[in-house]
Write a protein that binds this DNA or RNA. Structure first.
Lengths: 258, 258
DNA sequence: CCTACCGATCGGTAGG
DNA sequence: CCTACCGATCGGTAGG
């Protein structure tokens, strides 16, 4: 201490140093890198938190547990989030963003109402098998601050509205037979959301297998052209469908429509 | 006070009394009545609790709130329950018993696998629109003591197994086309359980309308005989189905299959 | 069935 | 990013 001879030229590490990748002129990282490092830490908090929240439930998880899992202490979390409920909200938002980007992509493409609905069902089913996707249906929005709860409710309504739009559009373009879009959307979304509750990473069913199966099962009854056709516009070879000897428990797990 | 002349014959209320229905020989009610009174109070606690738990979520409801709503104080609740989590469990159990009695009744009757499945779907949909029924899917079993959580998980498995049995039975008796009973049960149960999340007493859809609609929608795709037949054994007049002009928002609310 | 109270938990903050 | 701590809530109990 008080030893001024420490003032050496750090841009020329000696052979005795373990040669860390230090920028030549400054011990501080450039602004961009620091921001990115911060964003990465923030996301690491979310990944740890969402896992714990799903495993144990939001109210049984303490911030100390979250911090422990990241090798820091509770107060450090407050560098990245205003409070526990904001962490919950950001986890939820990650899931919502995944769904939103799926919807954006589907809207950018073409196809009948039925085709769009099938794309949405397939992708949504897959998302329900991810942590952030499941958080979309397993977290209680009443745990959020009022402001964030409002944002979340609005996002939920947009997603629900998309299901209904695709169904109503399909009725218009005659790819889907007439029905009540609201109830049909409820029925489909219910089956899909339920995946977020029963899916287990260590279970028998792969996300792809679930998504493939549900895509057929949930939209087949709506298709205008009857059971064996997909849509008028895309006739296909004989449907590869579960040929159905109920004695065989095995299911295909790969090769879906991606 | 200290007035011994109060010792009058209470079996002969004077015209000055407001004539309460007091038993002739004793100010204490008979044992049976006291037990029943206790059971009624116990159930009143559950009705108040389930409402609050659904409205606000279990963790946001304090026992003081529950007690307040019943015009008593918190410690009084401990005359009827060992603790908060036991109240939650008993609410959940009420719902489970409702489902169990539905299943018992269906099993006592006859019919194809498809017919039984339809009865179950219809009744289950209706239950999801009740408080105790919704508690079955909206409460988190991790809030229960381990012993009660085990009981609840077992009950859930029994219900799930019943869905699968009816479907597998329907495949055997050829009322349902071959499919994977496990996934089919998940899809159906998901749609039904979701009702417990979106149904609102003050909404547009009556429980009967929902039950009728879901019964058709969720089982139609499974029926062996194609879209327009119910089962081989019970041919019917042309299906009264939503004739489906999507512009009409009104739905029938009465006259279902009970 | 009530008054009065304890005890533990836990989110959040002060101040480095 | 840490140590140390506060403050409020709330389930549960003692003792009538």
């Amino acid at each position: 201490m008080g030893n001024i001879s420490l003032d050496v030229d750090r841009s020329q590490p000696s052979t005795m140093d373990s040669a860390p990748p230090v920028p030549p002129s400054s011990p501080w990282l450039p602004f961009e890198s620091r921001r990115r490092a911060r964003d990465e830490k923030r996301e690491a908090v979310l990944r740890a938190a969402v896992q714990l929240f799903l495993e144990q439930g939001y109210h049984r998880v303490t911030l100390n547990e979250v911090a422990d899992r990241l090798n820091i202490t509770k107060p450090a979390l407050y560098n990245y989030f205003r409070g526990k409920d904001e962490i919950l909200f950001e986890c939820w938002s990650m899931g919502a963003e995944l769904v939103d980007s799926v919807i954006t992509e589907i809207n950018a493409g073409g196809g009948s109402g039925l085709a769009k609905l099938r794309k949405l069902v397939h992708a949504y089913a897959g998302l329900m098998a991810t942590d952030f996707g499941a958080s979309l249906v397993r977290f209680d929005l009443r745990d959020l601050a009022e402001r964030n709860a409002g944002v979340a409710r609005a996002a939920k309504r947009r997603i629900d509205a998309t299901f209904r739009q695709y169904i109503a559009g399909g009725i218009d373009d005659r790819s889907i037979r007439p029905c009540d879009p609201k109830l049909a959307a409820f029925a489909i979304a219910g089956s899909l959301n339920w995946i977020g509750h029963w899916y287990r990473r260590d279970g028998e069913l792969s996300p792809t297998a679930i998504a493939d199966e549900f895509t057929v099962r949930l939209t087949d009854g709506l298709a205008a052209a009857g059971r064996l056709e997909m849509t008028k516009k895309t006739p296909r070879a004989p449907q590869r469908r579960n040929s159905g000897r109920k004695t065989t428990g095995k299911k295909r797990t790969g090769g879906g429509r991606g």
